[in-house]
Amino acid sequence: MMEEKLGPGQVWGKKFVVYAALGVPKVDPLKWRFKIDGLVDAPQEFTYNQLTSLSQVISKRPAQCVTRWSIRDSEWEGVPLKALIEPSGPRPEAKWVMFHCEEGYTAPVPLSDALSDGSVLAFKLNGKPLSAEQGFPARPFIPDLYLWKSAKWVNRMEMMENYRDGYWEAYGYHERANIWEEERFKGMHGKAVRRTALGTA
C-alpha cells in the first residue's frame, strides 16, 4: 500500500527523533495566528479555532526523515493545504511556498507539493493534538518530501516566485527534498547518489 511505502535508503524506526534546532517555543493557541501571504490575491489570517473548525482529513503516510529513519502508521489530521491555498488566489508566478515558524525556522517547498493530495496543515498526530515537541499548534505534513520540510510551529505560508534557502537548505540540504528521488542534499539529482563534499554517501 502506498501509505506504508518506505523511501529508498530509509529504515523503519520505532519512535520519532525530535529535533528542535532553534528550541521548542511555547505557543498560546489563543494568540497564535496563521497567515497566508506573498504572491496571493487575497491574503488570509486564521485563528487556531477557525482552522480546527474547518473540515479535517487524515493523511496516513509514513514520516520520513532525511537522516534515514521513517515512522510507519503516522496519521496526520488537519486541513488540506489545497483548501487553504486555493481560496487565497495564488498568482500564476507563484511557484514556491516558504513556511515560517514561531522560533524563526523556515522551510521552502514547491507549491505543487503543497497542493498535492495528502498534504495537510496538521493539528493532530495519531489522533492526539500535536505535542509541543511535535510542533503544537500546527505543522504542515507533505508526504512526498523529507520531514524537515514539514515545519513545526508554523505560523505563516508565503507564496514566492523564486526559490530561497530556508534553515536547513543553507546547510546543504536539498531544495525540493523528494523522498522517492532521494533528494537529500543539494547537487544530488534524481537517484544518483554520490559521495558529496558533505561527507555523506
Binding site: 520505532k14 519512535k15 525530535v18 534546532a21 524537515w148 546547510y171 542534499f185 558533505l198 561527507g199 555523506t200
Partner: peptide, 20 residues
C-alpha cells in the same frame, strides 16, 4: 551511530527510546 541532522556529521542514537 547515525547520520546527524547536521549534514556530514554523526551522532549516537538509542533505537529504543529514539533519544539522541
Amino acid at each position: 551511530v547515525r547520520q546527524a541532522h547536521l549534514p556530514g556529521n554523526y551522532e549516537l542514537y538509542d533505537e529504543e527510546s529514539g533519544g539522541l
